[in-house]
Design a protein around this nucleic acid. Structure first.
Lengths: 251, 251
DNA sequence: CTTGACTCTGCACGAAATTGCATGAATAAG
DNA sequence: CTTATTCATGCAATTTCGTGCAGAGTCAAG
């Protein structure tokens, strides 16, 4: 990665999140903290940002509109998103479902290796605008307003041409017997179709989704390759999933 | 391969990916890095790009990126957007090109009647998320990072199935003789294709775009149905467009 | 056909930039 | 005050850069 580009990305990160944490940026770019600190020092000298202990802050006091977005993305989902992003290897193609959980994956994707992201969510696609190394394939179709994903015959046909390595599936409910489910029939169909085209299907699960059921079934839990579950859930509640042979990763 | 041609390809790569990495370009063209470096050096001398360690970046350091430009949605563009939205009648289907001007149209669309919006820009699509009456058709394909629009054969095929009433076209330059133009060859092709499928094509023009020309021609000005131009431009500068029979609306 | 000027390309080598690690100082937290 | 981070600087290893140079190809004049 070019250092010039990295500095722009650091500025982006600063604008987006209102701060840059040296440690986090180092992970993000897969570089040592020393390098990030050097960047921050130089950029501070150029007057692009203000150096603080642990990272950097914007030169001017916070812009309000972006801090709002940050507040929405809960800590739990961020952790799940990072764990999911860790599973992705350079050169792979992943399919990101619509939703707030999968949006976190998009944000957490390492910025230093090339990945192809396929998505039928314009929101996710827009999220990846400033990601330097990610190639984005957008699936088109009629947009479902409530979930903001493309659906319909055209979307199905475009998806049928893809063979993603991992499908990160968004669900509203997970139940050991009733399977993975969501609130809309059409959406369930398209999720099922994406899963069928993908080598692996992984879903991100927070407590409130666990052991719940929605009206429209996507697939049995056993069809999953793995689940990334919120940390701190009783082993007891997870047992029935392990019994189904599902790989569980806590984050 | 001709070095002249290679240099254009390098410029394309720069526009497409926002950077050129010497090593990668060398692989791409099956040449030594030395040759690429020489090219980059020469092109930097010609002012076509900015040399950085490891490769090259666009000439303008840190173009105010889309988020910044979006925040600075200028008063002029808002007025142009409103004028464009006023042209749309209930029940019509419009195609919105990518770009900041057309994004203003999306924001200005009346909230009380049903319109179908077709777009190949995930940014525009996301913008319409909270619009109650608008049906959004998203065109998919490989996303061009710098302009954030879907391109490629798949996008072309999806567009070919649509017959929008109005295409609101985004351009970087308008010239009475040299026509409508933009910075990227591929983009020019897709814009031309959309225009061919649409009943009318309207473009929004601010002063700095008027009487200017970019490298890649989209179509002659005479192929337009109309232009919405920024208020307060000398009648003299508009005369040549009127002479071509173009309907001009000032806003 | 031959010759000579010119261009393009790859290789070699010293210079410069970038990065990670180590060390000791500075800072924040308890 | 004590402890754990975080910071700055020096240094070594690696990568990239610029330049000189030689071989191959092109082109035109002789």
């Amino acid at each position: 990665m070019l250092t010039t580009q990295r500095k722009s990305l650091i500025l982006d990160m600063l604008r987006r999140e209102g701060q840059v944490i040296a440690k986090r940026a180092a992970e993000e770019f897969s570089l040592s903290e020393d390098t990030i600190r050097r960047d921050l020092r130089e950029m501070a000298a150029e007057g692009l940002l203000r150096r603080v202990h642990g990272g950097a802050m914007p030169i001017s006091p916070d812009l309000p509109d972006l801090s709002a977005r940050r507040a929405v993305s809960s800590d739990v989902k961020q952790r799940l998103g990072r764990a999911a992003a860790d599973m992705v290897k350079p050169g792979q193609t992943i399919f990101l479902d619509g939703g707030t959980s999968t949006a976190e994956i998009a944000r957490a994707l390492p910025r230093d290796f090339a990945v192809t992201v396929v998505t039928h969510s314009p929101t996710i696609a827009a999220e990846l605008e400033h990601h330097p190394m990610v190639e984005v394939i957008l699936i088109g179709g009629r947009l479902y307003k409530h979930s903001m994903v493309a659906t319909g015959a055209s979307a199905m046909a475009q998806i049928a041409l893809m063979r993603p390595d991992i499908f990160f599936l968004g669900v509203t409910a997970v139940h050991p017997a009733r399977g993975l489910s969501t609130g809309d029939f059409e959406e369930a169909a398209i999720k099922r179709h994406i899963a069928a085209c993908s080598s692996e299907t992984i879903t991100l699960v927070t407590v409130e989704k666990l052991d719940a059921a929605s009206p429209h079934v996507i697939m049995p839990v056993s069809a999953l390759s793995g689940m990334i579950v919120q940390e701190g859930i009783d082993e007891e509640r997870l047992a029935s999933y392990r019994a189904l042979g599902i790989a569980l990763l806590e984050a």
